[in-house]
Design a protein around this nucleic acid. Structure first.
Lengths: 231, 231
DNA sequence: GGGCGCAATATTGTATACAATTAAGCCGCA
DNA sequence: TGCGGCTTAATTGTATACAATATTGCGCCC
């Protein structure tokens, strides 16, 4: 029996559930293409379908799930084209946020970034690739947050969420998810207030990531034939 | 049978309603801060609150409305800070989309852009500022669409929606909304395939827009005292 | 007369019931 | 055996009923 330890009244249940699903997707505990049945989720979380529907609607707005009318919600499977677009968008936006972050970061911000990196290392040490991937994303989001541009930070968050799906589908190396050196060097540049360097490091870091994906033309993987041809 | 000629299936009612509300907000027929009561909207559109809630949730994800728990949904009132952020984000993203658009635009695209401009002129001739503003926004979205970057086009769409609110709150000039010359010159550059020029024109166009706003520090206008002080 | 607290009202949050649509299973037939 | 159509089951779409919460107005006490 799942009893709720303490119903924190502050956040809406739908938000908590969409956050939980987002985390599960980030950590690759739910694979792209998985069907998210309303009754099933309602049962799992002990709420009515009303709440679940609100949560799924939120996720669909972030393009983490696709909702097909009368057929249900599925974890999104970004196409090759979408994958390329997401990384192009990141390469456009994030270097700039890194630049701004270098200009505005406080000592506290730097401390938090180091904390993120340590967490990443810990996850990697435990070979928990899902957690490491999630933390790597949080690192990028944190930089956008430090840049103090909420709007753009929101975009970055959405892009990183989708990147998680893309990595699940198209990752080809066994190398580290986000090379620790890249993140470390970035923090160094930001701490030093060197915006130009931070920008350049971020750009090359994203290009590395991008090139570690297999985005050659081919059929979209992981999708059953029926799924691929019917919609 | 792979061909599905047209999704005859009408879009979800919630989508239609949120689109209608978005249009009304774009055209300044609903002022920032207006309360959007669920029963009221349900009555207007002849559907249940379930649908209305889904529509409002969509709008809140685009940050066009703010939903306060147990208090309801209100048309968003971007703060000065948010206003600055939105335009900074546009200045980051849109010049690049203009550049790409110049590289990819087809004759058909150019025709459609001219069509947009003509509509703008027609709306201005009728002194319908709301419609003109809406069409001006569509022009920018169309350019992002031509650039063939769906993801970024989605961001641009969200930014322009919020720009509409910002203009409602902070516009100070009586001058034309989007100077017709600016749009016309942009189309020329795109038609000529001159990406660098298009990029520069877009940048200066956005700076013009930005400078036509009154973003000096002051109390947020249009917000009742209670609204302003309680949250 | 003014401030405080309680009750009444209105509005939103959630659950459930029912309708509509899709997907699957089954049987019969060529 | 394989295909086609029908029936049946499962799932989503929508409406409504009920519960929880905030706002409003009134009356009481100081």
């Amino acid at each position: 029996m799942l009893d709720k330890p303490e119903p924190k009244k502050t956040a809406r249940q739908a938000d908590e559930i969409s956050a939980a699903l987002t985390l599960a997707i980030h950590q690759h505990r739910i694979a792209p293409g998985t069907k998210l049945g309303e009754d099933e989720l309602a049962d799992i979380y002990g709420v009515s379908r009303t709440i679940i529907r609100a949560a799924l609607l939120s996720l669909s707005h972030q393009q983490l799930v696709e909702i097909h009318r009368n057929r249900g919600a599925f974890v999104a499977q970004p196409s090759l084209r979408e994958a390329r677009e997401v990384f192009e968008a990141r390469e456009l936006i994030e270097p700039r946020t890194a630049h701004s972050a270098a200009a505005r970061a406080t000592a506290d911000d730097i401390k938090r970034l180091h904390h993120h990196i340590n967490n990443e290392h810990a996850a990697l040490a435990k070979a928990d690739k899902g957690a490491a991937l999630h933390l790597s994303g949080l690192f990028h989001i944190e930089i956008a947050r430090i840049a103090d541009q909420t709007t753009i930070a929101g975009f970055v968050e959405a892009l990183i969420a989708r990147s998680s799906l893309i990595i699940a589908l198209y990752w080809r190396r066994e190398s580290a998810l986000c090379e620790k050196h890249a993140h470390h060097a970035l923090v160094e540049a930001i701490a030093a207030g060197d915006g130009t360097l931070a920008e350049e490091l971020m750009r090359s870091h994203l290009l590395d990531l991008h090139s570690a994906l297999d985005l050659r033309d081919r059929q979209t993987p992981g999708r059953s034939l029926k799924e691929a041809l019917s919609p």
